[in-house]
């Protein structure tokens, strides 16, 4: 196996993910509509409740919808990560995961390729959202569309890796609803996605620290600053560290000697 073989394998996995995404119309559609619905609802609902003061990276008073746009970008990626996690669990239940795992490439590489494939899909979705949001007068500086790319890739990697970890530890498809409740919603709501953290601090110091410890907060802030051409070093560090940690856990979870496949019998009998 030479690098060119690895490249072919990666190309094939990315292509399959992209084909599946575009050919499953429902998934394609809901991925685009969900953040827009949230934008409409939250922007309308909170518009008058929350006054947003001038906080970095913003240089002026901003409407609420501008504030939540980065959070919704991160949400797209969170859902995408969970979606690919769900499809991994489904593939394992149905057996099609096996076709991936009997490939002669090392398992860490297969998992990483799978992760990169899901990031490609999530970044494309994020840009489609940004294009539509432009009509909502969410118009960051033109250069911001470029500088946000590395932030989207990094946060996509983190949330995709989280999805991989969960897929390796969730025993059955039926347990997935529980994951939605215990992962997606707390992660999203206990973060800076919907309200600035200084607001949270005013009401509860404990919640403030929970939000600070939440990697999703840092994904959101990384995207927020990058969208305005600025760097958020702490957030970048936290997101990179969390990505690495999740990836190690995922490789461990899928290890043929230790992880979950062996404990539950691989969905076989």
């Amino acid at each position: 196996m030479t690098p060119i073989h690895y490249a072919r394998c990666l190309g094939g996995i990315v292509k399959r993910e992209a084909l599946r995404w575009t050919q499953q119309r429902g998934r394609f559609f809901s991925a685009l509509v969900r953040p827009l619905v949230w934008l409409a609802i939250f922007a309308a609902g909170f518009h008058f409740v929350l006054g947003v003061s001038i906080i970095p990276p913003y240089e002026t008073y901003i409407p609420y919808e501008v504030y939540i746009a980065p959070g919704l970008l991160a949400m797209i990626q969170l859902f995408n990560g969970m979606q690919s996690s769900l499809s991994m669990v489904y593939d394992r239940e149905m057996g099609s995961m096996k076709t991936l795992l009997v490939s002669p490439f090392p398992r860490w590489f297969l998992l990483t390729a799978k992760l990169l494939a899901s990031v490609v899909v999530s970044v494309v979705q994020a840009y489609i959202f940004l294009a539509i949001a432009w009509f909502w007068e969410i118009d960051p500086p033109p250069l911001g569309y470029l500088t946000v790319l590395p932030a989207l890739i990094l946060s996509g990697l983190m949330l995709g890796a989280l999805g991989l970890v969960l897929s390796s530890f969730i025993r059955q498809l039926e347990n997935f609803a529980g994951v939605m409740n215990f992962v997606i919603f707390p992660m999203f709501f206990a973060s800076s996605a919907l309200y600035p953290l200084w607001r949270v601090k005013e009401s509860s110091l404990t919640l403030y620290w929970i939000c600070q410890a939440n990697p999703f907060t840092h994904a959101t802030e990384l995207i927020r600053f990058a969208l305005y051409g600025q760097m958020a070093p702490l957030s970048a560090g936290v997101v990179a560290g969390a990505t690495l940690l999740f990836m190690i856990l995922a490789v461990w979870g899928y290890d043929p000697g230790r992880g979950l496949l062996a404990r539950r019998g691989g969905g076989g009998e």
Partner: peptide, 19 residues
């Protein structure tokens, strides 16, 4: 097999998994 993909797309995916 991936039900939503064509026969050839399914086989091409597998071929790539073998480099």
């Amino acid at each position: 097999l991936d039900l939503d993909l064509t026969v050839r797309q399914n086989l091409a995916y597998h071929a790539s998994l073998h480099g």
